[in-house]
Design a protein around this nucleic acid. Structure first.
Length: 565
RNA sequence: UGGGGGAUCGUCCAACGGCAGGACAGCGGCCUUUGGCGCCGCUGAUCUAGGUUCGAAUCCUAGUCCCCCAGCCA
């Protein structure tokens, strides 16, 4: 059985909403929204926001809208809206018929602007971008009023209408809010409401050449949709007074409440669009859906399940302080989910040939293997067993150290579900000294893996029968960066911490024959190795490519690591 | 040296004047036909200094440290 989403862990936003409900604010409604800008791919940080917004709505029997914040035609594309919708759906959330675009509101937004002008709250400014910056002042010095601040209402109205009509050059004028150039909050120093951009918009085409700014469009869009709680990240905290200003000065149907929370930071990866884009553009990864990327597309391809990601978002909680969540928690969440769901199979990643000296040459047995010990309803399968097998190279050591209790000369181990075998001889390449083959004997009395005399072995190995094995490419993925905070010790140069071993491609893997027809997207546990999924892009019928999602916990590997140091 | 925000186990989140709790990580043990899973146990935190109070992570005062803001980006 797969894990289910547990009861919501209460967070400070729940407390706020509980209080709102107590005083019957918004008639007890809870309406949230997830407002991505369609200029990039969604990542695990967005997942936190999606789970929060849709989760809150679900918790309070409300609804959550999907609204694209598409107010900047120069950066936004339809391709992104498609991928974002697919990702949200994949994550398991449903906006039903509530798919909106800020661009749907361009006309009412324009009317609100007219209202602001008429009430003396906005004016057309002819300052250039450079001049606007100069007039704005600095963090410590107040700004100065624009020379165009005192334009009459009729003149402003005329000019703004002509801005819309396309009479003025790109960037030559803006519509600005008339607030306070001396405000200690820079956002209140007559912020730009509209800019001229004679560009084609991905949805409105050439209907507009002026486009509203986020600070103006967002609160009004929220109000138009009847949003009750507008949840955003901490960097917008400074903008909240402006959010409220817009709602206070426009005849809107309601006044949503902006609430800020801390965005997710995950160790051993980067999350900013800029850095992600750089990784793609400079070829450090194969694309936005490279399985090493923290994008939802990448994680999906890597084999992360929506259930695991949702469980993760639930466990990390929601707060207001800066945070760095341990990647280990994410990995724990996938393992937890996959442990119950993934069928077990045997796959040898780095094959070492084993010949069973006392096993008949032409004999092939069918060994029964349980598909998932955590879920017996998944049944069992048969795996062929014969004289020539492969085992994992690292499961044999000629000169084993203390805590190594796998196969070694003279030692006996169990082959999972099959027989006990004993290593009788080691065959080496005469030139390189490399171990190329093991000569073993098997004990016919131990069929199934039990010794009738009660003798025990210290290890159980996975194996495949050489003749029937299918070959496959397996891609071993590891964390993209070697440092928890990439670039922290290189003055922010995150690429300096790129993990050179983040991808290892193995081409001579031997898998049990049941995997021959593995379907793209399906996932398995390779026993004793990890969870793997069949790559959706690079697999061909009959030639699956496997991506390692995450390893199993491996105390032996850890021990070895510790000894190296 | 303006404004906004934040400081609780290594990490993340709780506790909202009444025994600082959970999860991940780590360590130890049990179990085991996956050195997986599971189970048990341990380690481990209230930024500092004062104050109020029978009692403070929580309230007050003064500090310290960290993050964000000077796009016609969102």
């Amino acid at each position: 059985m797969a894990i289910t989403d547990s009861a919501p862990a209460p967070n400070f936003i729940h407390h706020i909403i509980d209080e709102d409900l107590k005083i019957h604010k918004n008639d007890g409604r809870v309406i949230t929204r997830f407002p991505p800008e369609p200029n990039g791919y969604l990542h695990i940080g967005h997942a936190k926001s999606i789970c929060l917004n849709f989760g809150l709505a679900a918790d309070y029997h409300g609804v959550c809208n999907l609204r694209f914040d598409d107010t900047n035609p120069s950066k936004e594309e339809m391709e992104y809206v498609e991928s974002i919708m697919a990702d949200v759906r994949w994550l398991g959330f449903d906006w039903e018929d509530r798919l909106f675009f800020a661009s749907d509101y361009f006309e009412p937004l324009y009317d609100y602007a007219l209202h602001l002008i008429k009430t003396g709250k906005a004016y057309v400014c002819d300052l250039s971008p450079e001049q606007v910056r100069e007039y704005r002042g600095t963090l410590t010095a107040p700004g100065a009023d624009s020379p165009f601040r005192q334009r009459s209402v009729p003149e402003n109205l005329d000019l703004f209408k002509r801005m819309r009509a396309g009479e003025f050059a790109d960037g030559s004028r803006t519509l600005r809010a008339k607030i306070d150039m001396a405000s200690p909050n820079l956002n209140m120093r007559d912020p730009v409401l509209y800019r001229i951009k004679p560009e084609s918009h991905h949805r409105t085409g050439d209907a507009w050449c002026i486009y509203p700014m986020y600070d103006y469009a967002h609160p009004l869009s929220d109000a138009l949709e009847g949003i009750t709680h507008s949840i955003c990240t901490m960097e917008y905290e400074d903008h909240r007074v402006l959010y409220d200003w817009a709602l206070d000065h426009c005849p809107v149907p309601c006044h949503p409440q902006q609430i800020e929370f801390a965005r997710l930071n995950l160790s051993y990866t980067v999350m900013s669009k800029r850095k992600l884009l750089q990784l793609v553009n400079e070829g450090h990864v194969a694309g936005w859906d490279d399985p090493r990327m923290p994008t939802l597309a990448g994680m999906r391809r890597r084999g992360y399940t929506p259930e695991a990601i949702r469980a993760f978002c639930e466990r990390i909680g929601v707060g207001k302080r800066e945070n760095l969540v341990d990647l280990a928690l994410l990995e724990f969440c996938v393992r937890e989910d996959l442990n119950y769901r993934a069928p077990r199979v045997m796959g040898v990643l780095r094959p070492l040939k084993v010949v069973l000296l006392n096993y008949p040459e032409d004999r092939v047995e069918e060994i029964e293997a349980v598909n998932n010990p955590e879920d017996l309803t998944q049944g069992a399968r048969k795996a062929p067993f014969s004289r020539v097998l492969y085992i994992e190279r690292e499961d044999f050591m000629e000169d084993p150290p203390k805590k190594f209790y796998r196969l070694a000369p003279g030692r006996e181990v169990r082959l999972r579900y099959a027989y006990f075998i004993r290593c009788e001889a080691v065959v080496k390449d005469p030139l390189t000294g490399e171990v190329v083959e093991l000569r073993c004997t098997y004990d016919p009395a131990t069929r199934g893996g039990h010794a009738p005399d009660g003798r025990r072995v210290k290890a159980t190995l996975h194996w495949v029968s050489a003749a029937q094995a299918v070959s496959a490419e397996v891609r071993l993925y590891d964390r993209l960066f070697t440092q928890a905070v990439p670039g922290e010790e290189h003055g922010g140069d995150f690429q300096a911490d790129l993990n050179p071993a983040s991808l290892q491609v193995l081409t001579s893997c031997r898998l049990e024959p049941s995997l021959a027809g593995a379907l793209p997207g399906s996932f398995y546990q390779f026993e004793r190795q990890g969870y793997f999924c069949v790559d959706q892009k690079d697999s061909a019928p009959g030639a699956p490519v496997f991506n390692r999602t995450v390893t199993l916990k491996d105390p032996w590997a850890r021990l070895q690591q510790a000894q190296k140091k």
